[in-house]
Design a protein around this nucleic acid. Sequence first.
DNA 1: AAGGATGTTGCCTG
DNA 2: TCAGGCAACATCCT
Length: 243
Amino acid sequence: MPEGPSIVILRELIEDLKLEGTKVLKVIGTTELDKKRMEGQKVLAFKTWGKHFLICFKGFALRIHLMMFGTYRINEHKKVKPKISFIFKDNEINFYTCSLQFIEDDLDNVYDWSADIMSKKWDVKKTVKRLADHNDDLVCDVLLNQQLFSGSGNIIKNEVLYQIGVQPKSKIKDLPLIKLKALATHAKSYAFDFLKWKKEYTLSKHWEVYSQKICPQKHPIKKEDIGKNKRISYYCETCQKLY
DNA sequence: AAGGATGTTGCCTG
DNA sequence: TCAGGCAACATCCT
């Protein structure tokens, strides 16, 4: 379900309901969090930061993270009980298998909005500069680093590395500047292609390496657990260079 | 139809 | 003491 673009789709769907400024009438669900706290409160805004979906109330916000298996339903529900459900006058929003957390601080203190690849504030030049602090990191790890590429996940990581012709095990310090720029540029452009394809239900048709057995050039694809978190990297040893 | 995976946290161990 | 490893969470597609 969730890489940054999927969360943007969720936000857009909810924005269409025009619920900002209206009150939550009831909050139910299996979560242990204080649901009463949100009842009768006006939603000031729905925001996203990378994979985080944020419901803003006066003085606090609820952070919803769909993790690996999270789902939601808008004005529908699944058979299983929701983790949390927001009942409005004419609408209901249900979230399943997600991680929930209240944020008490001002969101501007908590989040660097410019780190979100889906944000207008996200910037190639600035990201390339920031990469200088990650010289010893593998390129596959920086693409999962939510402080640098917030919203990027394993699909975006693998597809971007194929697009720029770089193997996941390459270290940042070994990449020529042009590849660092390509890394940042393609991360952003692929995230927006992801958004477009996801809306068309054609995302998986566009995968060139992720979950594939051969690359577009008909070479075999390697599948290997690489990096700090041992996430799966799919890559082509021929089309992608090891620096 | 069993196995794997779009993610993150926090505990345990050496 | 701290970094690394790994379980836990829980669902759906292949």
